[in-house]
């Protein structure tokens, strides 16, 4: 039994195709990750699944309800934590949750009980009656997560839950997410942080330019490359890449600044041969590193670019403006 089945879901905005007919299923209780750079179509996908955007094509079944035919039932059964802050800074934490509960048709007794539960979960109980404008960015994000859980949704969507947070707060949020997963809630998470996807997700779909490039468990994804990654630092990376290509022993050398990286079946044994070839071609080598494939390497393998090369999200500016409250 699936919590969600997506079939050929597509979204076009005036000629630009943001999501190109993607299909996937998410099992009940699964933590499913959509990993991709900014602008890959992750948020658009989430918005369609949460019935905030109408798909141009295709559909999805969420908690047994079709997103096109029964958007209201879908909304009632899911929780969503947006990438950008959406809590009301001029209300207290309690009021934010209380009004949310009312909007989702919860009765008074259930609301009170849930407010205590979700605030305890994100460790904001002491801040219950404080205005949200006095909260730090991390606290606001925690409150958003609490609010997303307030009406006990069966599926929780987390759109870049740790974007713009410091590493310590990020770890904190990860531990809440792990806690939720152990309670059996299905979670759909989008992220462009590889370590986040690797650490949290049961399965990951790598999404780029609106398409799912590959979908598997983090372990299997890393296994796909089957072997090692060799990274060589040199002052003449282009020349070195040509030499490696001519050797014909490996695939796709990739140049990033002064480093040439490529996948190899048995990296350690290849190192002396590469050294020899480089010596012959009179190329100086600064360093050589052989490592096991990371999710980053998998990402490069499927998309041809590093996710880290993407520009940082502009939401930092927004956060700054929002920090003043309004």
């Amino acid at each position: 039994m699936y919590a969600m089945e997506v079939s050929r879901l597509a979204k076009r905005f005036n000629g630009f195709t943001a999501v190109k007919g993607i299909s996937f299923s998410v099992g009940k209780g699964e933590l499913f990750g959509l990993l991709g750079p900014n602008g890959a179509g992750k948020s658009t996908t989430i918005y369609m699944l949460a019935t905030l955007l109408e798909p141009s094509d295709g559909t999805a079944n969420v908690n047994g309800f079709d997103i096109r035919a029964h958007p209201d039932q879908v909304r009632g059964s899911i929780g969503i934590v947006f990438q950008d802050p959406t809590v009301d800074t001029r209300l207290s934490a309690y009021d934010n949750l209380d009004i949310h509960g009312r909007l989702y048709g919860m009765d008074g007794k259930t609301r009170k009980q849930r407010i205590d539960e979700v605030l305890a979960l994100v460790e904001l109980t002491e801040w219950k009656d404080k205005m949200v404008k006095t909260f730090s960015g991390g606290m606001r994000r925690r409150l958003e997560i609490a609010r997303g859980l307030m009406h006990t949704p069966k599926i929780l969507f987390l759109d870049e839950p740790t974007l713009g947070l410091d590493p310590q707060t990020r770890r904190h949020i990860w531990s809440y997410i792990s806690k939720l997963k152990s309670q059996g809630i299905t979670i759909i998470l989008t992220t462009h942080y590889l370590e986040e996807a690797d650490y949290l997700c049961d399965r990951i779909a790598i999404i780029d330019h609106g398409e799912i490039k590959v979908l598997d468990t983090p372990k299997n994804l890393k296994g796909i490359i089957g072997g090692n990654i060799i990274s060589i630092e040199s002052r003449e990376p282009q020349k070195l890449a040509d030499v490696v290509t001519r050797m014909g022993c490996c695939r796709k050398p990739r140049i990033s600044e002064m480093t040439v990286s490529f996948e190899a079946k048995d990296g350690a044994k290849l190192v002396p041969k590469v050294m020899e070839a480089a010596l012959k071609a009179k190329i100086d080598i600064e360093s050589i590193e052989v490592h096991m494939p990371s999710l980053e390497d998998v990402f490069i393998h499927y998309t041809g670019t590093s996710i880290r090369e993407e520009k940082a999200a502009p939401s930092g500016i927004m956060m700054g403006r929002r920090a003043h409250g309004y």
């Binding site: 905030l52 947006f82 950008d84 959406t86 809590v87 009301d88 800074t89 949310h100 609010r147 929002r322």
Partner: peptide, 8 residues
């Protein structure tokens, strides 16, 4: 400031 999303 985002709250509209919560409502919608």
């Amino acid at each position: 400031f985002g709250f509209l999303k919560e409502m919608l």
